[in-house]
Design a protein around this nucleic acid. Structure first.
Lengths: 216, 216, 216, 216
DNA sequence: CCTTAAACGAGACGGTACGTCTAGTCTTGTA
DNA sequence: TACAAGACTAGACGTACCGTCTCGTTTAAGG
């Protein structure tokens, strides 16, 4: 997940001075610090370089621009998302919602996440990068949670894999969308109470929909 | 809804040349055109002024900056949202979802909406402006839809006004969040099929939750 | 001589804020100061702008680059060259030589003059600019001096205007060339003694050549 | 003349891989080629290294910087200057003038010569380097020519060695200065006609001045 | 023959300046 | 007073070179 965001024509290169690994870490850390202090729109690459104790050139050698850099810097925050086993499906969902909300509560995430999404609407490579390093690993949690619930017998096994994929997408959009919207647009906190209400509506809705589908 | 986004120190003004009303419309229209062509991040006020056939001064006299201008320009697009009566609650919700998705499908909305939301995370006045001219009028639709459903007898009358408000907020975050997330993050279309699936989960979930709450 | 080194499409322009005349003077003065302190090759336009208390943009709006700016800055120093009447042709020539040497003795001239000449070898517009604002006004002194000597009866009136022009060019190249070469290449001072020796050789040579030509 | 422009702390070194002699030649040749294509100011050492098929390090190990490198590269062109015996003093002078003009006509010389002279005004070691590898070998021609003319009986033997040195310097500044000035500043060709006119004035002037000095 | 030490290519590094662009302000003349 | 025009200060942009450094790899001389 964390993996290779760098390139250098992927493979080879033998000769020449190797790139400093420390620089990478310093730059990403500096980027997050700058996001916290200044926010997305006032963050400048020159300032990031200064904070990281690195020349601007070094920064541009590794990242194409502000967007790419910020995606990588923020992506590291999403790496900490896991799905701890809380014993039941509703508890797991609530846990995931709260965990996601915690990440979104960091100032660097708040200011950066929507900004890069906005940029990505006109930049397909950026969209892919976001998906690869942020979105997909969240979606994985949905699949993981479902598998666990099926193992517990809380959910029936899926028969139609296509429908299963559609449902997973729907769940993902509903969970992530609602949490992001409440946090960033409505500006209200995602507290345990809200998480419980939301989870109840979601799971009851899914159960009802599954029942209705079975009757068709 | 469209109303006074301008100020002129609120009170009067008597003398001097009056402001050109045509300029306002031209500027907002030019802003949208620039958003379509260039996207948020490459839009410049100088370019907007040029397109509108207006001096930069005129633009700055009316708006504080890029953010405010773009909010107003995009807000006009949300004015067209209505809640046509389709006869039943599920049909109304599906209609609203599709209508909202239509607005989000415009390139100017896609690029601008998340961008101003991102800016707003560090700018309280901007947050208020967005809420006043974009968010609240969407939320109004939720309330309107509920009132209509209650009139039809599809929903019981609310008793606890506070709980009613909480539920309305939840619905709003779920609807808007899911549609925005699917459109802008997942990058998948909000087609009638998805709208139907989503609506079913939402309404069944709300009904189930209401039932569960009644039993408490 | 001092005149319009600026352009703005030569004629017109009616509207808009007029350019600051003070800025021009400040920039040229700052340029000379920077030349003295740093020399040609370490002079940067950013530094000049800083010294002049002016934004870089202002500087680039008026001059195309370092070369053009420095030519104008140095040209002003050549404006002080005159041809004071010392009563006889040899005295006039000696005076001109010493005066020219004085200008070349300034550190800003020393470092800048040859540099722009070097640049001009690959830049025709620059070559024209140098000629117009520096070289031609020196050559004028040659013509003035000859006219004065003819008025005094020290030189015969010219008959063939083409030959007269050729001779003036030769004189100019010999005087300017020798003074520049001694100052900048040989690195020796142009003192009154040298000026006297040089003048004697030059005038005797010209007189002898004229005599020889007359005999042909 | 061509001699040791390298150093390696002059003395020893015993072990280790010896420096590639081919590299030196390739670098100087590449430097001249780059001067022709790009001119002094756009020549970069990285580009020279690339053309020479050599690493930048190799280049910096041998030369301190652009100035030193270019001086050496151009100096080689001046090595071809000789003083062929044309039978008479005027013919010899004309020949030298034309030969010098030929070297100055090369684009690499035109763009580089004045540039390094300009740099040298603020860089004493560079000034010495230029004198040693370019200027002095030209001045040598003057002395050689005088000796030859004295051998032919065209000039009397000198008595005062100090005065002789002063005269040689004067001649050198006048010849080199006039040729350089006509070529690079006036931008006119040094053709046989001009060479003849110039030589006549110079020699007649020197003869007259010597006569006048004898009468003192 | 085998060590040894400098030279070599490659290319990353911290810097500095470039020339351009945009933001937001100001100063004109005109309506 | 608003307006169009456009100059102004301020500062970020992304690029290009500088001269240095760190690698791994030759390559000759000397033991």
């Amino acid at each position: 997940m964390v993996a290779n965001m760098q390139n250098r024509t992927s493979a080879g290169h033998r000769t020449g001075r190797p790139r400093s690994a420390a620089a990478d870490a310093a730059i990403l850390e500096a980027t997050r610090a700058a996001l916290i202090e200044l926010g997305w729109s006032k963050l400048t690459l020159g300032d990031v370089a200064l904070r990281a104790g690195v020349a601007k050139t070094t920064l541009y050698r590794r990242w194409a621009g502000k967007n790419e850099l910020v995606v990588d810097a923020v992506a590291e925050l999403f790496d900490e998302l896991e799905l701890p086993d809380r014993g039941s499906l509703p508890a797991d969902v609530e846990g995931a919602v709260l965990q996601f909300a915690t990440v979104l509560d960091r100032p660097e995430t708040r200011t950066a996440l929507m900004a890069v999404v906005a940029e990505a609407t006109r930049d397909e490579p950026l969209r892919r990068r976001i998906r690869a390093s942020i979105v997909d690993c969240q979606k994985q949690l949905v699949l993981e949670g479902r598998a666990r619930a099926q193992a517990r017998g809380e959910l029936p096994a899926e028969e139609d894999p296509e429908a299963a994929a559609r449902t997973a997408d729907l769940i993902f959009d509903m969970v992530a969308g609602a949490v992001v919207h409440r946090t960033l647009v409505s500006g209200e906190p995602v507290d345990p109470r809200w998480a419980r209400s939301f989870t109840r509506v979601l799971l009851l809705g899914l159960a009802g929909a599954a029942e209705a589908a079975a009757q068709d």
